[in-house]
Design a protein around this nucleic acid. Sequence first.
DNA 1: AATATGCCCAACCGCGAGCAG
DNA 2: GCTGCTCGCGGTTGGGCATAT
Length: 312
Amino acid sequence: MEGRREEGIRKGPWKAEEDEVLLNHVKKCGPRDWSSIRSKGLLQRTGKSCRLRWVNKLRPNLKNGCKFSLEEERVVIDLQAQFGNKWARIATYLPGRTDNDVKNFWSSRQKRLARILQASATSKSHKNKREGPVYDEVITLEAPKFSCSSEGESSSQAQSCSSPPCFGNSEIIKMVPLPDLVKPKLLALEANPVQQELAPTEKNPWIEPQPLIPFLQNPQPQTDLEFSLETQELLARFDPYFDMLTPLVASELGNGGEQLLMEPPFLEPVGSCGSAERDKIGNPITPDCVFDDLPVDMFDQIELLPNSSEQH
DNA sequence: AATATGCCCAACCGCGAGCAG
DNA sequence: GCTGCTCGCGGTTGGGCATAT
């Protein structure tokens, strides 16, 4: 696929020598003047291509080849709901991630969710022929078995086990209506077009009886720790505010009744995202502290994110 | 073991914004 | 104000690897 086309413009995969030339250019001139790279005859690449290479691969402190951590997944989900597909903007909240990374992550995720949803819809339609629709009842779901094997998980790359935590075997999670006190805060959130599209009604979702998410009644055999965030996301599509139930779920698992709210404002763009900074702005709710409220042993399977320097 | 399928990721393309002349 | 250029962003595509059948 790599090749030359008209006017000697090179396309396709970058060679190490080209990377070196590009790095030298950046050392001398900084990450700008991309088009001059070709006009000076340094590389047969367009300025556009050079910039992309730098931004996505050569920039320092990139987490290349490192899967998204649980927290990063959460950030993306929250920010996507808030900003929409503004990948570059979202990426600024994720140190070491590029817009391309976020975009690719989201795209894979969407495909996966679509498949799960479709499979669920299919199985539900079969089920409904016998049972008919089920509305207006307390939703219960049984968490899939905890299958992120700690024994000899041979990761092809030394990647973090980025999958979200699961609840223990056979835990029953009750989905209960959103408490009133939560609702006003939710209104401040920017509506997600996708959620709007998929939401069963534009009326108050917490008043209208919501259809059950098919796969909750008939959980698909999802892999490993795919469950919790994946599930939450699907739920959120039917009930845009499902995310807010997460802490509730946690509390139902026996960690006290305190409810926490996760709202996008806890996030700060890279450069000002230290916890001290967050404290300064008076927003103590962080993803970490949300996880703190979950059962401690849930995270036994979660490895720390390796440094990019440890990769490869 | 061979083949099919799914997933991840790098790179390209088109479009729009910003800016200088 | 117009034009052309550069840069940045979001969408899309295709290759390669991993996993399932």
